[in-house]
Amino acid sequence: MRFFDDTVEYHGFWGSFGDLIWWFFTVFIFFAYLMALFSVIGDLFRDRKLNGWWKALWIIFLIFVPFLTLLVYLIARGPGMAERNAAQVKKSQEAADDYIREVAGTSPADEIAKAKSLLDAGTITPAEYESLKAKALS
């Protein structure tokens, strides 16, 4: 009893360049689909104008008819999706800028200038000015 036909050669996974290209293309499409799916799910939960029932309905359709629902969502709600994403990026950038400004503080020259203006106004004594100046320079 023969299990293999002698006329068919098996080259393994790496045997055919066309099979290799097709495999990479398939994997690329799968990951692109997953990225789009997670973007849509993230957008659904980011959207504050859409009520919970509509969000649940979109999720149900994404589970049972995923590819078609994903295309419909991207066509119907794509512009809003881009606007919400841009708003989120802007909000994150502003938060990062505020944090950097808060952490950076002022330069030693700014601190010395403030101390000098306090000295000139008579708010602090020359000894306090020298102390603040030494602190800023250290």
Rank of each mutant, 00 (worst) to 15 (best):
F64V: 03
F3E: 06
F4L: 06
W58I: 05
D47Q: 14
R48M: 09
Y129P: 14
R48C: 04
E83K: 13
D43N: 15
S39F: 08
L57Q: 07
K91D: 05
F24V: 00
E111Y: 03
G105H: 12
L62C: 02
I21P: 03
L118K: 06
L44K: 02
I112W: 11
S107K: 09
F17P: 13
D110H: 09
S107G: 08
S117P: 00
L137F: 15
T125Q: 05
S16Y: 14
V103S: 13
L70M: 15
A76S: 13
L68T: 12
G78I: 08
L132S: 11
Y33F: 04
D43V: 06
R46H: 15
D120W: 03
Q88T: 07
K49A: 09
D5P: 02
F31H: 05
V27E: 00
D19C: 08
L20F: 12
S107W: 12
K91F: 04
F67W: 07
D47M: 13
G18N: 12
A115H: 03
L37K: 08
A95P: 08
R84C: 06
S39M: 11
W58M: 08
T26Q: 04
Q93I: 06
V27P: 00
G18P: 00
E128V: 12
F3Y: 09
K133V: 13
S16I: 12
P66G: 01
P126R: 13
F3V: 01
V72M: 15
W58F: 11
D43F: 14
E130L: 14
F28K: 02
G80T: 07
A95E: 10
T69N: 10
I112H: 12
A82P: 04
V72R: 15
Y73M: 02
G80S: 06
F3H: 05
V40Q: 07
V8Q: 03
G15V: 08
Y10M: 05
L137D: 14
E9C: 05
K135Q: 14
K55D: 03
L50W: 10
Y73T: 01
A134Y: 07
D19K: 15
I41T: 06
D47T: 12
L137T: 14
G18T: 11
P66R: 00
K91Y: 05
H11I: 01
I29L: 11
S16C: 11
R2P: 00
V89S: 11
V40F: 10
K55V: 01
A134P: 04
F38Y: 14
G78C: 12
